[in-house]
Design a protein around this nucleic acid. Sequence first.
DNA 1: CATGAATGAGCGTTCATTCAT
DNA 2: GATGAATGAACGCTCATTCAT
Lengths: 217, 217, 217, 217
Amino acid sequence: MPKLKPDTQKARREHILDAAERCFAREGFQGTTMKDICRDAGVSLGALYVYFASKEDLIAGITERDRSKLTAQLTEVAAAPDLLAALARLGEHYTVEEPRYKQQLVIEIGSASVRSGPVGEIFRACDAAVLAQFEGLFARAEAEGKIAPKLNAKLLAQTIAVLGDGLFWRRAVDPNFDASAMVPIITALIGSLLNPIPAPAPYEPAPAAPAHLEVNS
Amino acid sequence: MPKLKPDTQKARREHILDAAERCFAREGFQGTTMKDICRDAGVSLGALYVYFASKEDLIAGITERDRSKLTAQLTEVAAAPDLLAALARLGEHYTVEEPRYKQQLVIEIGSASVRSGPVGEIFRACDAAVLAQFEGLFARAEAEGKIAPKLNAKLLAQTIAVLGDGLFWRRAVDPNFDASAMVPIITALIGSLLNPIPAPAPYEPAPAAPAHLEVNS
Amino acid sequence: MPKLKPDTQKARREHILDAAERCFAREGFQGTTMKDICRDAGVSLGALYVYFASKEDLIAGITERDRSKLTAQLTEVAAAPDLLAALARLGEHYTVEEPRYKQQLVIEIGSASVRSGPVGEIFRACDAAVLAQFEGLFARAEAEGKIAPKLNAKLLAQTIAVLGDGLFWRRAVDPNFDASAMVPIITALIGSLLNPIPAPAPYEPAPAAPAHLEVNS
Amino acid sequence: MPKLKPDTQKARREHILDAAERCFAREGFQGTTMKDICRDAGVSLGALYVYFASKEDLIAGITERDRSKLTAQLTEVAAAPDLLAALARLGEHYTVEEPRYKQQLVIEIGSASVRSGPVGEIFRACDAAVLAQFEGLFARAEAEGKIAPKLNAKLLAQTIAVLGDGLFWRRAVDPNFDASAMVPIITALIGSLLNPIPAPAPYEPAPAAPAHLEVNS
DNA sequence: CATGAATGAGCGTTCATTCAT
DNA sequence: GATGAATGAACGCTCATTCAT
């Protein structure tokens, strides 16, 4: 039976995970030492091992936390009235608002995921879940007559993934990358893929187009 | 004088670089030991250090080689009669023909590039060169009336980079990714960005569009 | 909090330093491996690095300890009623009582001191301090009318250094060197340099001569 | 049968030995690599091994050469009309005229000599020879009525060695050491030990004493 | 529970020496 | 003879992990 209150435990875990994120993003997974993380988190080595059994357990924890945040946000997107706008908002959040080190961390995680071990499994499971969420989202939207894509829902989801991950990567790797200029362009491309059908607003001629950016009309 | 012939030297370097590529892709940069590379290349530790001064020198060499191959291929693309087809061909080459470990290596290099050191500099220099090549390519194509894009050449180049890197990433990270299905879709998106103008073929009305996929008509 | 008590820490440091002294004297600085020292001290490699950051830190520590012991002993000499006897005692201590490996260590340190690095700085600083101590000692003795040297205090100090270091060197390098026979001879030479003035003992005709050097009559 | 003329061989050996001396003095024995010596001598690695079988063979060669030079010079001293002047001249040569790196090399050799191996044997053999030469020198001088020392010839030789080696050491180790000021002082001390008897020059009252410093009157 | 000293396998790298050319 | 590429044992040092306090 834990002597510490579960709340405190949870908070401590999160605190260490935050420190580990910063360190891994800065120095890479293998380039970060357990001591680095302790220093950054302000805890002792022994304390760290109370909460995480190993270094790998740390990235596993980070991966789990990050990706579960993403699936949560996708659930919100599913509920949004304007699908495209919600997606644009999501892209904006991840590539403009979040600090750059978060994207660098994603690269680190992706890199670790190709090696065997728990990280890869968590990463791929989350990735598959995200793709499935997208697929479901698009299938429903099409069934409801909100979009009229040329591609089936599965391919659509995969294409979105390519675009989103491309944004991630560029942001992480290119210091001159202007994410806020790129998000609308990518959004427009997604728009052209989804081909949204304007809601029939009787008596009011619908505003001509999705209008974010008329990439090619 | 028993100095090795430059040819042999060059070949040996390439051979070691190949082994290092495989190892780095498999285990990551820091997860690979110099001994691993020697075993894979079939050379002794001492011999390796005749050709490369350090582990970092190895990734620097790999980065340089890989990226110079890319710029060479881009020069070929620039000379191709059908720009879009050449780009599609390039994407096909990198994401379908090349073994998957090459993409995983790119991730490793990108990951290493965010840390300070020579790798980052080489990586970013090459990346900038590639972007500049694309920009020049598109500027010329527009000046020659071959394409009529909505975006300026610079943004166009950056968008292409997002799409291309997204392909790389998905291929590396998702074992279920079907690159050959995705390349045409991405090509179509690029087509919609470039908006190529069909060569005026008298008497014959040119086929309306690249038609793979009429992204939005 | 399980931080070791400062006493224990200090003792452990000294223990390792002792082992390092023996090893360095036996095999030389570069000829000694960190593992040798660990074996001799009975500690693990990791433990050694808790107390000393590097191999160089070890000789720096030794140099500092040895030379600070010397300056302490010189302070005692300064306070002694009979200067010459105190000096003889000092020479006796270093070249007869101390084990021979200590002299060999001095040679090792001197050898290392000519190369750049912290060892040289510490060594020279201590050496300069010792010379200055000697100089002050002699200046005071002369002012107080205890000695009547032909040389000024500075040259006197340097000459003493030559004699003392010569003793050191011979002891270290020549297995047949008979230090206990040599110390009185060197002492007599020093006596002839210092030219001590016998304390005026009234009513008693002072013993015939300063007799500095009737080494063997 | 050697293809090269013995002269060329000899010259090459000397040339390599010179380079090795410089390197060993600069970086120490173990701190010098065979490549360092090759670079300094301008020969290839393979060539070096034609002339010297190993690194140890190099210091053995150096030791032999240096020490045989010393014994040769002592033979000259023995033949000199004025013993004390000749000794002063010798000290002057070694500690003032020779470059400082030569003294540092002696320290290196002495340091190496305490370890087992051929260097120690050569060093000690030469050292014993030098002491014996001195002893013979002094015994003869005393028999011939040229000197009237208080010490026997053996102790005399050992004391000279202490003084000479002290000079060596100080010169090597103390960058502020003024050898040219110290040599006359040490010479005077030696004078006081030897106690030379002025040649009876009839009718001319012999000049009172060596007078540099009347160590003990 | 918390601490940080201790462990030791394993890392990147060096270098004396050999030997095919 | 001369060359320098090749060898591989051995070095100084690191760090994930354990555990006595």
